[in-house]
Design a protein around this nucleic acid. Structure first.
Lengths: 110, 110
DNA sequence: TTGACATGAAACCTTTTGGTGTTATAATGA
DNA sequence: TCATTATAACACCAAAAGGTTTCATGTCAA
């Protein structure tokens, strides 16, 4: 898919297959063929998804014998969490927002 | 880009321009041309980004006179927050994880 | 009514995505 | 040693992403 460093963590989680891979690796370390067995796509396609996840530093692979074992590295997801935190006030403060609107409405009446 | 409903919220936030648009709209409602003035891309490209954001229900547009005013609708971002919450244990529990590892190491020594 | 402004819509272009298939190489196990 | 297993490394492909340009249409303000 790609050669150099390109994909960031936002792009990495954009694909449902990649999100599923992250979920699989949250429980256990898995070889490429084991990951592939969970999907209906080819091993080659899985490897490309793993490459993108690697570029985003979300997974790492380690060669063990003839297998390559992948494992989760969740820390980069904090970047998304941080980005999200800015927008949290727009749903967390729904009640205070409503309160504010009601108060202003009463001022209009007065 | 697309006609029918296709893009989900994960795809919508994958693009940095779209994330910037969401940020712009968090302060104020803006017309298409006003949004465009913040970027170095054409109005047409901005409209396509707005369409994708609309499909993900993250923004809505309202025609006012000859302008089309867009505004933020942040609630769908909770889907990302919820997804993220599953992985939070992998960075929040770093200290407990370390504690666990140290304890196991001592057991190995014994 | 006439421009200037704001948008809509279509056609087109290039690069990236998400897949496939094939071939080659390395480790395993009987 | 030999067939099997697990990957790596390519080449190839259709469709989607992200842009652009061009032209048409609706609206506001004189």
């Amino acid at each position: 898919m790609t050669a150099v460093k390109k994909h960031d963590v936002f792009q990495a989680i954009a694909d449902p297959t990649r999100r599923e891979i992250l979920y699989l690796l949250s429980d256990q370390r898995l070889a490429i063929s084991e990951i592939t067995s969970h999907f209906s796509i080819t091993r080659t396609a899985v490897v490309k998804h793993l490459t993108i996840l690697s570029e985003a530093k979300l997974v790492s692979g380690e060669k063990v014998g003839r297998e390559k074992i992948y494992y989760l590295h969740a820390e980069p997801l904090t970047e998304i969490k941080d980005w999200l935190s800015y927008f949290e006030r727009f749903w967390d403060n729904k009640l205070s927002m409503l309160k504010y609107l009601v108060e202003n409405e009463e001022e209009d009446k007065a």
